[in-house]
Computed example of a mutant assay.
Amino acid sequence: MKKFLLGCAYLLLVTWATFTATTVAAEQSQRLGPWEVHYNAFNSTALRPEMARQYNLERGETIATLNIAVLAAEKPGKPAQRVTVAGYAMNPLSMQQKLEFNEVIEGDAVYYLAQTSFTNLETLRFFITIKQGNEVQELRFSKEFWRN
């Protein structure tokens, strides 16, 4: 659990440190069935170049990065859950962009990263399906993005 939290904290710290002067970046979470799903979406320019290379992510003024981690809600301290994550982002014109998630495992930490493009001052709606065995849940959230 500590490694998971350190991995998430590192990614969130990078995001927070980049935007401290102008905006607040915050991780969010939702309880979905047996899971506590933590998620964050931010402009990829918040990533340091070496971090982007490490996780094979692109950096760009109009590229958003998503980070999703799934924990067992009823079992605090249990390692992150390995799940299947799929979904899409929808812009205000209802155009969809499929999200390709990559699983990252670092010790007990498991999280899923994806990227999508946006236009300046665009609010994207995210529809994420999370599956494990017969359990299926959908995470939905919106986020406004702007060019840096």
Rank of each mutant, 00 (worst) to 15 (best):
K143E: 00
V37T: 12
T45L: 15
N56F: 11
E50G: 06
F126C: 06
A17L: 10
W146D: 13
Q96G: 07
V14T: 12
T15Q: 09
A64L: 05
Q132R: 12
M90K: 11
C8Y: 10
Q28Y: 01
L6M: 10
V104P: 06
E61P: 08
V136N: 05
M1D: 04
M95E: 15
L57P: 01
A72K: 07
T20I: 11
G87N: 05
G87L: 02
E122P: 03
A69V: 02
G77R: 03
F141W: 13
A114N: 04
Q115V: 01
R82A: 07
M95Y: 11
Q30C: 15
F101D: 04
I128Y: 11
Y55C: 12
E144H: 04
L6C: 14
V110Q: 09
F101T: 05
W35L: 03
R48C: 05
V110E: 00
A64K: 03
Y88V: 03
F19Y: 13
A41Q: 02
A114G: 06
I68V: 13
G77I: 06
A41T: 09
S29A: 09
E106R: 00
R53L: 13
L124D: 14
G87M: 09
N120K: 15
A64T: 01
A25M: 15
L32K: 04
P76R: 05
V104C: 08
Y10D: 05
P34R: 06
W146S: 15
L12C: 02
A72Y: 05
I105D: 13
N102K: 13
K131N: 02
I68W: 00
W16I: 12
E50F: 14
A17E: 07
K131H: 07
S117K: 14
G77T: 06
Y112W: 04
L5W: 06
V70I: 09
E27I: 15
I128P: 11
L99E: 01
T123E: 15
L5P: 03
N43Q: 11
S44I: 04
N67T: 01
N40L: 12
P92V: 14
T22M: 14
P34M: 04
P92C: 06
W146A: 13
W35V: 00
Q97D: 10
A86S: 08
T123S: 12
R48G: 08
V85N: 00
F42L: 14
A9K: 13
P76I: 12
L124Q: 02
I68F: 06
G107D: 10
R147W: 14
M51P: 00
E138Q: 14
E135T: 11
E27K: 09
A9H: 14
E58A: 03
A69H: 03
K98E: 13
T23A: 12
V24F: 09
A52L: 07
L71K: 06
V83R: 09
G7V: 02
Q54K: 07
D108P: 11
N91H: 08
L66Y: 05
L99V: 04
L11C: 08
F4C: 04
I130H: 11
I130G: 02
A21P: 10
L71S: 04
E27M: 15
T18C: 02
T23D: 08
